[in-house]
């Protein structure tokens, strides 16, 4: 990373004309014994205050790595960011010195994880862990911090918060644990919250409650929410816009309604077609054929071409750029028009 001038972190109240958070042409590689794994290959997306961006993709599509790069919690090495910018209120986080970067983590940009049980420290009470945020970052006394912890537990709807503040993580159910994780993440009023598959480990009814809670907290505080998921069902109700990732790239981005109505990328279309539907009961369920790409040995041209029903010869040789489909959407497919027309039929 080159250091030309030392950028300064903008204040919370900075009147931003640009987006709150913008990822621009981000590349992330991992040096492994087998070779260089290109996990993220030029991802760009942006997020405004109060907006929810869903990043959709299967395992290994680079969606979590992108989030970890934003948080600055990638282990470097083996990870490397050869190119790209992550601008938070206009300041490139990647060029920020570590001490200022640390000011961002948890306070300005925060994150929750898939498995809240393993993301909570097993040897401390949940109250201790939530109040730690206030003690460390706000210098509060133990008593005041614990009071704030109870308030937060109330805010994320944990019943009998006052009685449960001294319980340990394993004494809570999965949904309650995720609420505690959320309480920790929103403790310092972050401007951006990244939720990395927050509901994957939970059962369906609890999933809906957690998503509702996140949406509500977002309305109260106007924070930007990045929702990383592989579950199309979770996305539909809460997201404003969607970025679909495949093989470390964004293959399609659009407003949420547009993408459900008429996908413009064969991968997105495949995903939507594989949702079980009541009216097609009894018929064989559609599945995208083939396997996700091997990140050590990415296919030439379009990464999706070995699995793509719309494949033509040039897909094998030329990687498609993100074509503009409309004012607010793009698709990285040479033949997006065909896909688009097919899906509107």
């Amino acid at each position: 990373m080159k250091k030309t001038s030392t950028p300064v972190l903008p204040a919370r109240t900075a009147p931003g004309d640009g987006p709150l958070l913008a990822v621009d042409d981000l590349h992330v590689e991992f040096a492994t014994r087998q070779g260089v794994v290109k996990a993220v290959n030029g991802v760009s997306y942006s997020l405004n205050p109060g907006e929810t961006l869903a990043v959709l993709g299967e395992s290994g599509s680079g969606k979590s790595v992108t989030a970890q790069a934003i948080m600055g919690i990638l282990d470097m090495p083996p990870a490397r960011i050869p190119r790209g910018e992550i601008r938070f209120r206009g300041t490139d986080l990647l060029r920020l010195p570590e001490d200022q970067r640390a000011q961002v983590r948890g306070q300005r940009i925060s994150m929750i994880f898939q498995d809240a049980l393993s993301a909570l420290n097993p040897v401390f009470t949940v109250g201790w862990q939530i109040s730690e945020m206030f003690r460390v970052h706000r210098g509060m006394s133990r008593r005041d911090a614990t009071k704030k912890a109870v308030e937060l537990m109330d805010r994320v709807r944990i019943p009998a918060a006052r009685q449960r503040v001294n319980d340990y993580p394993h004494q809570f159910s999965g949904g309650m644990r995720q609420r505690i994780m959320i309480a920790m993440a929103i403790a310092l009023d972050p401007e951006v919250l990244i939720a990395d598959e927050p509901t994957t480990a939970l059962d369906v009814t609890v999933q809906a409650q957690i998503m509702e809670l996140l949406a509500e907290l977002q309305r109260e505080s106007n924070m930007g929410l990045i929702l990383i998921t592989h579950d199309l069902g979770v996305v539909a109700d809460v997201a404003d816009k969607i970025a679909v990732m495949y093989g470390g790239r964004i293959v399609e981005n659009a407003l949420v309604h547009d993408i459900y109505r008429s996908p413009a990328h064969p991968y997105t279309k495949g995903l939507l077609d594989s949702i079980p539907r009541v009216d097609l009961k009894g018929q064989e369920l559609y599945a995208i054929k083939g396997m996700p790409p091997n990140l050590l040995d990415m296919p030439q041209g379009c990464a999706f071409h070995p699995r793509c029903p719309y494949r033509q010869d040039d897909c094998v040789t030329d990687a498609p750029p993100l074509y503009e489909v409309g004012p607010t959407r793009g698709s990285a497919c040479h033949y997006w028009r065909e896909v688009f027309d097919d899906s509107r039929r």
């Binding site: 640390a102 983590r105 948890g106 909570l120």
Partner: peptide
């Protein structure tokens, strides 16, 4: 994960 989470939440 809780160590990664602690990092993400700003622990030194």
């Amino acid at each position: 994960d809780y160590v990664v989470a602690a990092r993400a939440l700003g622990a030194s």
